[in-house]
Design a protein around this nucleic acid. Sequence first.
DNA 1: GCCGTTTTCGGCCCGACTGTTTTCAGTCG
Length: 582
Amino acid sequence: MADLSNATIAAALDELGDLYELDGAVVHRVLAYRNAAKAVRDAPRSVAALTRAGRVTELPGIGKTLEEKIRVLLETGTIPAAQKLRAKYPPGLLDVMRIPGLGPKRARRLYEELGIDSLEALREAAEGQKLRTVRGFGPKFEATVLAAFEAGIAERREPRLLLHRAVELAEAITDALRAAAADDPELRIEVAGSVRRQAESVGDIDIAAAASDPAALAAKLAELDVIESAGPAGENAARGRTHSGVQVDLRVVEPACFGNLLQHLTGSAAHNVRLRERAVRRGLHVSEYGIVDEPTGETLRCATEEEVYGRLGLPWVPPELREDRGELDEGFVVPDLVTVEDLRGDLHCHTTASDGRNTAEEMARGALEHGLEYVAITDHSATHGFGNHVTPDELWRQIERVRELDRRLEGIKVLVGTEANILTDGSPDYDDDLLAELDWVVGSVHTAFNMSRADMTKRIVAAIEHPWIDCIGHLTGRKIERRPGYEVDVDEVLAAAARTGTMLEINSAPDRRDLSEIHARQAREAGVLIVINSDAHGVSTQGVVRWGVATARRAGLASADVANTLPWERFAPLRKRARNRA
DNA sequence: GCCGTTTTCGGCCCGACTGTTTTCAGTCG
């Protein structure tokens, strides 16, 4: 049985769902495939391994039929039902469905009546005014199709925004809105949606607001400097676009139901669906306007989210956890999630000795200003290349320099370390006597990403078993929205890390956040020691740990689950080198 | 296709908008 990644299996199930949808299957069946794909994607275990063990139906939303489909996919590399449907519907039809207003039903109708099987065919039919000959389609629709092509929707998919950029924009907008309506004592404005949930990337910015005159506040969106253009989107709502092209949705209600709106707009969609299903079983109907009690027909309006969850018999759920990953299950205990303030150390940063912008002293002082008690200087190693490598001789000198700095600086412990490259055979690129002299070593993969899954796993496990590698940096090498991580058997890596006491970092760079939230949760459950590191290349980016913390919170990690929330005296003996010396 | 404070069948969140239509299906978030 081939070892397909969870992402690959999930993509296959999503595709099959799309094909069934085109084929006119009842919506709930299509939804079942989407749910299954999500369950696979979110699974904190290798789904291939689970399937081999006959345990894949333990995942929510995967029953006998889907188990069989996944099994066949693993054995043969394809799902027969999908092959059959692919033959029936041209691949271009799925592209056609990207046009706004064209869902599965209407796309299929155009295919059957006009033979439209690609974006190009759709464009020609719109230009030739053929679309209006089909029942249910008219001139206005032809115009929106042409406008979509004009806007370039066919050529490029809208890139999703990394969270740090989205937060910056969202805060600029909410600040400007608050200033514009400062005279309203009832005013409440909060960022909602995936930005509030601190997701890895976001598609648009959702803002929830309450005001004494909702329509007036909604109209103000268009007047903000950060907004290029905006217009009304229904009653008491506005949709606009920033100058950078990001869509912004603002909805305003009366203060009495601000809690309902904020809960609704924060999502996720999957969380809200689960929440509402739960509510229905209690005879309650939840929407952004309130909670309707079915027997009495009365509507409970909630000014706060706490009231919304409370009326449903639930504790308030932190936004980062609202992904339908068990947070609404009976008996779920909301963890006391780790915060930026809990961090006491940073175990990964760079200086001018390699490719950083500040000296070790500046980085140490910066760490002190961020309230840290210890910081490890971990410049790139001997084989880094780019002219930024640190030769062994230079690292010996660096040891002296940093030790001197540590003696001199008050209030912070400065450790000397390295971010050593993990060579293709799994060995680090310094000699053991040098590595042994350091206080801390991060081992990272920076080269040869295209190795087979088996070889990459062997490589990283070998590094984990090395006595002087304390921690593995950015485990998968992924760049969010740019490239997937390299293929590696995470289950096996985690088992090795737990066995050897090797720590894994959550790298906080906003385009990395690696461990991912899924892997971080998995690592915690495997008993792996986790640290949250900045990987800062200058004092100006030492604050990026907030993104690493965001990932940890989405993984459900409490302060006690993160090793560098400990004071140095308790962290130091946890290092593998300390255990090896003991 | 899944699943069970409606358990092995019959349900499966909620509301708004759009364009086309004579009352609403499909799409979207």
